[in-house]
Amino acid sequence: MKLSFELNGIEHYLDVEPGEPLLSLLRRLGMKSVKEGCGTGDCGACTVLLDGRAVRSCLMVAPQVQGKRVMTLDGLGTVNDPHPLQEAFLECGAVQCGFCTPGMILVAYELLTRTSDPTPDDVRNAIAGNLCRCTGYVKIVDAVLRAAEWKREGRWR
């Protein structure tokens, strides 16, 4: 079936199978930051933003995004031009194997679009559904708080 949606700021018009998971479509379109961990909504590795809200792309089929805006980590920043939130993750040592990182950054991004002054508990609540097997979470919380500080200082774009 025909599908049109915006992916990282670019309009896409394509044919999809009605039952194709959004996760597979995004990876097929080259968005390899979107990971499949569990495939059942539990781990958060497949998180993307849909009209600015974090969702699980493994629990959606492609047609559900008809007419909507999807953002993956690829749309936030690049290796050469990282977003301050990505820089904060690097600076705070919040990335180890990196498998959870795209999802973590996107849920943190959603949080920081709503508040620039989150408490550590707000951050823990925001990332509660995103599992990390490496870091122990402390440095991830530190990174989000650091990024929030930079946002308050006007260092976000």
């Binding site: 909504g41 699980r56 629990l59 925001a126 559904g129």
Partner: peptide, 12 residues
């Protein structure tokens, strides 16, 4: 409701 699952699931 804020104790149900986590934000991405509550968004859906």
């Amino acid at each position: 409701l804020s104790q149900v699952a986590a934000p991405p699931l509550r968004n859906m």
